[in-house]
């Protein structure tokens, strides 16, 4: 399992895992390209692959969860 803060190689780039959560047996990932600020990936794990979220409802749900996680520092 990938840990938050780890750097992973994918798609010829290097991304760091910013956040993750599990919902309905899916592991959602928020990745940020360490070489290109502003290149973010919102996806979910499928074996060794990351499937990018393209369903707007699912994407919005994930964004809200990531936002809640990342602003609960205490």
């Amino acid at each position: 399992m990938i840990e938050v803060g780890k750097i992973l190689q994918a798609d010829g780039n290097e991304y760091t895992l910013v956040d993750k959560f599990i919902k309905d047996n899916n592991t959602y990932l928020y990745l940020s390209n360490i070489n290109e600020i502003g290149d973010f990936i919102f996806g979910k794990l499928d074996g060794e692959d990351i499937v990018l979220l393209n369903d707007p409802d699912e994407l919005e749900m994930a964004l809200k969860q990531f936002n809640a996680d990342l602003h609960n520092f205490n």
Binding site: I2, K6, I7, L8, Q9, A10, D11, E14, I41, G43, D46, E48, D49, I50, V51, L52, N54
Partner: peptide, 15 residues
Amino acid sequence: AQNESTRRIRIEGIK
């Protein structure tokens, strides 16, 4: 645009 983008990427390794 979302559908046309890369929908699946392979994790090549973790450093």
